[in-house]
Design a protein around this nucleic acid. Structure first.
Length: 429
RNA sequence: GUGGCCGUAGCUCAGUUGGUUAGAGCGCCAGGUUGUGGCCCUGGAGGUCGGGGGUUCAAGUCCCCUCGGUCACCCCA
């Protein structure tokens, strides 16, 4: 047991996990660029008020789980529990031209008991668009996330969508829901029997049988939407159809952060257990910019959890995600200068290359080459050094079809040092 | 924050009613083969038995506390 360990609920991602994260971020960045999103990098901590007002005073993410601390200047700061509030704060501060389309990758911090797929530091990929309430944009944003999951290789993903109305129709719906719940408050689960008055919408989201029974007879959001909100939702879902994004309406989809209006959506992995199967979600937040002191500006975005995506990939058996075999392993038993120079030369030519250090034996170096997964070993011994050449040897993934009886020298040949990169290009093609 | 289960080598785990220098497999390093990896053989490194306290002649083993992991609830990515 080492003296220091990663803090509770945190972990180190490295090796195969590190490669997977790299692949996820690269694919997301690529898709974001194709859709004209620009990267935004914001501080991981903010004035705690940014999250209190931005995420919502009543959300549990803020009331129970936020990492709040005082710095040496007496400022009350908080580690970001999610990405949207910071990006919106940056928008209000800098006022970029509209529409502003930003993507990000960020750690997020929540103080809670760790569990499968739930950590005190997790990582999210996301986008935000400020400055348009066009429902076609909603479809574009959701389509981006759906396309990302598809590009990663996930197939068992379900999209649920809903509309939470706006400041015009939501208060009336909240009142009618509250009136309905008041009449049946005794039938709710223990948790919500105590809290339904403060946030009646949360009852719709409850997974316990008593609340599920109660909500069956509850007023429906769909019936309560005003004409503009209903029209917005209809255009949004028509957009999803046009973009070939499969979706399912869920009247009870009520997300946990307070800022959502109109469009809300959630992607769940059907390969994961229900407890932590949410891999990404988001929605529209047309009042958030004002909440943070900016001019009335509509916005929409999503966040998707990298650790959850990794779990979903594992559950779907996508083992090869991020696997990028090394091209060449340089084996040098003449002192290391040749390895030093050849790896440099290959890398400059765009060929990935590794070598061993510390003057290991030929056997040891070849063993390392094998283990590295490299496709080709480039061997330099005294003979090659004297002749100005190298020996190229196919390693395991290039040896299919080579007869073992053909001898130890099968699948290898000499190449001139001067033509090395060109020869390897042909081998690796 | 509440509850269940679990902490022995880098990893997966054995370790008898408490009894001498705590073991195996895998992995790692070296050698067998001073020019050929994967298979095989031999050897080696690597452990304050999560930490602290207690009981005992004696604790990996029993008791208490604590830290950590894991799973579930809550909530969420």
């Amino acid at each position: 047991m080492s003296a220091f360990q990663a803090p509770t609920g945190t972990r180190d991602l490295y090796g195969a996990d590190g490669a997977r994260v790299e692949a996820l971020v690269a694919r997301f960045a690529h898709l974001a660029h194709l859709a004209a999103f620009g990267l935004v990098v914001s501080p991981m901590f903010e004035d705690a008020g940014v999250f209190r007002r931005g995420v919502g005073e009543t959300s549990e993410v803020v009331t129970k789980e936020m990492y709040v601390f005082e710095d040496k200047g007496g400022r009350t700061l908080a580690l970001r529990p999610e990405g949207t509030a910071s990006v919106v704060r940056a928008f209000v501060q800098h006022r970029p031209t509209l529409p502003w389309k930003a993507w990000y990758v960020t750690p997020a911090f929540r103080y809670e008991r760790p569990q499968a797929g739930r950590y005190r530091q997790h990582h999210q990929l996301g986008v935000e668009v400020l400055g348009s309430d066009d429902p076609d944009l909603d479809a574009e944003v959701v389509s981006l996330l759906a396309g990302f999951y598809a590009a990663v290789g996930l197939e068992r993903v379900e999209l649920r969508v809903n509309s939470m109305g706006d400041a015009g129709c939501m208060p009336a719906y909240g009142a009618s829901l509250a009136a309905y719940l008041a009449a049946r408050a005794g039938e709710l689960c223990d948790e919500h029997a105590a809290t339904w008055e403060r946030n009646p919408l949360r009852v719709l989201d409850c997974k316990r049988a008593p609340c599920i029974a109660v909500r069956e007879g509850a007023p429906r959001i769909a019936d309560a939407l005003c004409d503009p909100c209903a029209g917005h939702f209809a255009r949004f879902t028509a957009g999803l159809d046009a973009l070939d994004v499969a979706w399912r309406r869920d009247d009870f989809l009520v997300r946990g952060l307070d800022y959502y209006t109109r469009t809300t959506f959630e992607f769940a992995s059907l390969a994961l257990d229900a407890a932590q199967n949410g891999i990404g979600g988001g929605g529209r937040y047309d009042g958030l910019v004002e909440q943070l002191g900016g001019p009335a500006t509509p916005g929409i975005g999503f966040g998707s959890g990298i650790e959850r995506i990794l779990l979903a990939c594992e559950a779907e058996g996508l083992a090869s995600l991020g696997e990028t075999p090394l091209d060449v392993f340089v084996v040098d038993v003449t002192g290391g200068a040749a390895a030093r120079d050849i790896t440099h030369e290959l890398r400059r030519a765009g060929i990935s290359a590794e070598r061993s250090f510390d003057g290991r034996s030929l056997k040891s170096q070849l063993k390392q080459a094998d283990r590295s997964g490299a496709r080709v070993a480039c061997i330099v011994g005294p003979e090659e050094l004297a002749a100005g050449s190298v020996t190229l040897r196919r390693l395991r993934r290039l040896r299919r079809g080579l007869d073992a009886a053909a001898g130890p020298d099968a699948g290898q040949e000499r190449a001139e040092r001067g033509a090395l990169a060109a020869t390897l290009d042909a081998w690796l093609r």
